[in-house]
Design a protein around this nucleic acid. Structure first.
Ligand SMILES: [Mn+2]
Ligand SMILES: [Mn+2]
Ligand SMILES: [Mn+2]
Ligand SMILES: [Mn+2]
Lengths: 134, 134
DNA sequence: GTCTTGATTTAGCCAAGGCTAAATTGATAC
DNA sequence: GTATCAATTTAGCCTTGGCTAAATCAAGAC
């Protein structure tokens, strides 16, 4: 049998996207819920220090996903907004799919937070169809 | 609504386990398929350099999952064997579950490689039941 | 206008996983 | 037995995402 590193290469790529996806989703949530997105609140919700959040925000700014001036609140760029919308949608499909299957609410929340980043477009469509019918 | 960092804390914990799980699984495969597990072959299959694999093996030895002498082949400790068996079983349930749902073989392989590490015992049992019946 | 304080940022540390280049070694060929 | 060569290991670099301690700043209180 031949060797297939492809799936591991894709796995590493997915990992590299996870933080960005969770952060833009969180910023979008805060903008909606609280009116503004601040480092301290993001850090509290992720359960990390404000310093960790700050450093990740710097990276997301370099990647043109987040926009802000020093000591000020955070905003999503158009690119960041787009990623947030897509990520949230996928997250929600995975979450509802798990619940439809019979996974308890709390467990579905926890598992969806990890699974979402590894569901390909093909699999996502199948999850969606399952919910509409099943 | 209250703030719930729990799912993110668990996500980070899952990530910390991923590499170990994939490596012990791979070593087990090689012991079975090839008779021995070598750094070079592991690196080839993961699609990383032999140096990267070597460093990860050093960590797994410190964690008492892997056993070997310098320049020699690798073995699993009892602890490593146990993890390999459990990981392989979970991986397989996730993979077969996706195929049963209608996900194409190749996609199921790729997605399962990432999803497996985020499926809790409760969700795994539900996946299993779905296959037996559905 | 100044003071105070909480939020933000900077400095500096760590571990995990990536890499290339170079040194070492085990095993095979001769 | 020695020479060779492929595999392994070491050295040294990078990025991401963790942390604490200390510095800086914005905004509200007075
Ligand atoms: Mn999400
Ligand atoms: Mn997530
Ligand atoms: Mn696996
Ligand atoms: Mn895996």
């Amino acid at each position: 049998m031949s060797v297939k590193p492809l799936k591991f290469v894709k796995l590493r790529h997915a990992h590299h996207q996870e933080t960005a996806q969770d952060y833009v989703e969180m910023i979008q949530d805060l903008l909606k819920e609280e009116g503004e997105a601040r480092v301290t609140e993001i850090a509290k919700r992720f359960g990390v220090s404000a310093v960790t959040t700050h450093k990740i925000i710097l990276r997301l700014q370099k990647e043109k996903l987040v926009d802000s001036k020093p000591y000020r609140a955070l905003f999503l760029t158009p690119k960041g907004k787009k990623m947030a919308i897509q990520s949230k949608k996928r997250h929600n499909v995975v979450y509802r799919f798990l619940k439809k299957l019979g996974v308890p609410e709390k467990t579905a929340q926890i598992d969806a937070e990890g699974i979402e980043h590894h569901v390909s477009p093909k699999t996502l469509r199948i999850f969606q169809k399952f919910m509409e019918q099943g």
